[in-house]
Amino acid sequence: MNRIIVPGEVIAEKEIRMPYTYTEGGKTYSTVLGIYEAEHSSIIPLEGLWSPNRDDDVVGIVEEDKGSVYIVDLNSPYTGVIISKFSQTELAPGDVIYAKVKEFDEKKEVILMHPRKLYGGKIINVKPSKVPRIIGNKNTMLNELIQGSKSNIIVGMNGMLWVKGGDVALATEAILKIQEEAHTQGLTDRIKKMFEKTGV
């Protein structure tokens, strides 16, 4: 049975290790507002920030060229860093990029690799906690979005999305609907129907 939990709520009357929890005095407590799936013993946060992991895809904007490194705004409390000599492309402040996380280091800097420049298009910020739903199981939702809007869509785990071409307004509307209804059943079908009704 899934249930909505809040910070400080007891998840188990024993000490278990699980992301978004801590243990104290023989009990396990939640640290976030989220959905607890007892079946999988896991917590899906409903709100909140992106915690960077190796190999996460991100969308960001180059903020500064410091010579040996580029500083990238990831719209998060953490700063992205690209080491210039590892970048195949010349970058400049204001460039929108798509890259992979190489490492999240002790200084809480996000070291990025394989940056690719994105030209034009629209940036949409969503809650990072909703990104997995926008992508969907095996990319099902993202494919639905791309087919339905005929737009180019690139999703960053950091909650930044880049959309270009096709019906950008429709793509935006669908993305915001997924964000709003991320925790409900049958969402993929509803998005499919939305495109059938208004689709391009």
Partner: peptide, 11 residues
Amino acid sequence: LAAAGIPMYDL
């Protein structure tokens, strides 16, 4: 704070 998704020990 909880609505902002900020991790906390309690409410």
